[in-house]
């Protein structure tokens, strides 16, 4: 089980970073989302894996570590907030500049200028 989870974390990270290295905003944001999956699951595994030990008091003798779960819960929600902000920036950039490239054109030193 541990191997499956570890390989999934590695896969999410690799796919996330590959997509972040793309040249357009949308795949970059998808990459960020993948990377968030990887990071969130990674943080969760810091509490180690266990089955049937949900940290609900009174349901068993031994419980899974609740602290990483609580931290990851809020991290998942914050990831959404981050994705939404970046997405809005991407839309704004695309509408403003007329393209959705993430890299500056050669010789372009000031991103604030509107060439439209």
């Amino acid at each position: 089980m541990e191997a499956l989870v570890a390989s999934a974390i590695g896969m999410f990270t690799a796919v996330g970073i590959y997509l972040i290295l793309r040249l357009r905003t949308f795949p970059v944001i998808l990459g960020l989302t993948f990377l968030s999956y990887g990071v969130n699951v990674f943080l969760f595994t810091a509490g180690r894996l266990a089955t049937n030990r949900a940290p609900i008091i009174g349901t068993g003798e031994v419980y899974a570590d609740p602290l990483p779960q609580a931290l990851v819960l809020t991290a998942i929600v914050i990831s959404f907030g981050m994705t939404a902000v970046v997405m809005m920036m991407a839309i704004g950039g695309h509408l403003e500049a007329g393209h959705d490239r993430v890299n500056m054109a050669a010789g372009d030193t000031d991103t604030a200028e509107d060439k439209a």
Binding site: A6, I9, F42, A46, L49
Partner: peptide
């Protein structure tokens, strides 16, 4: 090249997670 960078990073993170999970805190 990008795939290689991403692959190395992914293997590293996965390995780290694996190393952590097989050991007790």
């Amino acid at each position: 090249g990008h795939a290689a960078i991403a692959g190395v990073a992914g293997v590293g993170v996965g390995w780290l997670a694996w190393s952590m999970m097989i050991r007790a805190p």
